[in-house]
Design a protein around this nucleic acid. Structure first.
Length: 198
DNA sequence: GCGACAG
DNA sequence: ATCTTGTCGC
């Protein structure tokens, strides 16, 4: 159980992070290497894997980090559970953009885990989630947008949600989403499950 | 009170 | 996320 005063304190930190987000066009086409990070669990032990893949040849290498996780999963505060491990797994890897398993600004306080990591590392990030956290899905000219308070905060392609983490924009999310679920995240997910089995 | 609710 | 067999669908 997490006390109310702590969650309210964390909300203030999220608001600070949201104030430091940069929504600017990145251009998916200039990616040379792309990173993906994910975490799997076995009890209270978290197994994080960061993958760096050549966007063209799809050759990759990875780094992993294993650590205890005690903060509970609370919708809207996923970063307290996974960001520490994800950052340890991705730091040191070479790439131009990092894809995070979770939402970016498509979050109650526009501070999802992809945004937290992007701002803390001062690096381009995009959040890719398997389900919705907040907002309404509104279709416009063939594209399903996630609207929050009258603002586009993400897009939906198939069963996946893409939202800006930091230093990218909605258009970048559209360009990425059109390519289908990122292979680098599929590999990260696969490695993360393999790691906990060993 | 009821429904929603990333991983 | 994780616990878990067979099974419906593209």
């Amino acid at each position: 159980m997490v006390e109310k005063h702590l969650l309210e304190f964390l909300e203030k930190i999220q608001l600070l992070i949201a104030r430091n987000v940069e929504i600017i066009h990145f251009d998916i086409n200039r990616i040379r290497r792309i990173c993906g990070i994910d975490v799997a669990y076995k009890g209270n032990t978290g197994y994080a894997v960061g993958v760096s893949m050549d966007f063209k040849t799809e050759d990759y290498y990875y780094n992993s980090y294993i650590g205890e996780v005690n903060f509970p999963y609370i919708p809207g505060f996923l970063f307290m559970r996974e960001a520490p491990l994800m950052i340890k797994a991705v730091e040191g890897l070479a790439c131009d953009l990092i894809l995070v398993d979770g939402h970016g600004i498509s979050h109650p306080r526009k501070s999802g885990i992809a945004t937290v990591i992007g701002v803390l590392l001062n690096f381009p990030t995009i959040g890719v989630a398997k389900s919705k956290l907040v907002g309404d899905i509104i279709e416009e000219s063939g594209i399903s947008y996630v609207y929050l308070n009258g603002e586009k905060v993400g897009v939906k392609f198939g069963k996946y949600f893409y939202s800006p983490g930091n230093k990218v924009d909605i258009q970048d999310c559209i360009d990425l989403g059109k390519k289908g679920y990122p292979k680098v995240l599929k590999i990260a997910d696969m490695l993360t499950k393999k790691l906990k089995k060993e």
